[in-house]
Design a protein around this nucleic acid. Sequence first.
DNA 1: TTATAGATTGCCT
DNA 2: GGCAATCTATAAT
Length: 187
Amino acid sequence: MAGELVGARLICDPGSALEVVAVIVEVEAYLGTSDPAAHAAAGRTARNCVLFGPPGYAYVYFIYGNHYCLNVSCMPAGEAGSVLFRALEPVLGAGRMARNRGLDVPPAGKAARLLTSGPGRLCQAFAITRQRDNGKDLVAPGSGLSIMDDGFRVPAIAATPRIGITKAADRPLRYVIAGNRFVSGKR
DNA sequence: TTATAGATTGCCT
DNA sequence: GGCAATCTATAAT
């Protein structure tokens, strides 16, 4: 299920000087055409066609005129289930993430979460854009952007209602590492 | 063709 | 706590 991605790592440009690594600490599941909150609910369009393809591919979309969000398709071709990445915890390359977000140095202490806490922020930290990353294979190494599950089992994953949506907002499809300070939202 | 809502963030008071 | 920024898809003229 979607919660298995929590605790895995998101890696950009491995092996290069630009390498950036972060642990996935918060995701949300979108169930496809049967989920009124999902982009796929209205059927296949030019924007969301990646969702209907094979699993493991990046679906990047632009929202509110300002922000990108990163999903990964997770259902067989023809079905549109996906997982939205909502927050990461930096492991390597925090300085580069900060620069991608227009900062000279990574924020420290309490403000550290500003780097990757939130779907728009994490995309900016990884310099993810629709043009560059939409449709990328996140499972195959060498694509420049990939998910690596190192097998680490997170001790406590909590399921909560999804955030920022107006339809079907009561379903507990958001998975977070309990107590992790990079999880988005208050506190 | 024009209008409006949206899986957000950051800067304003 | 409120609102502007301004891309994409869909609904309404």
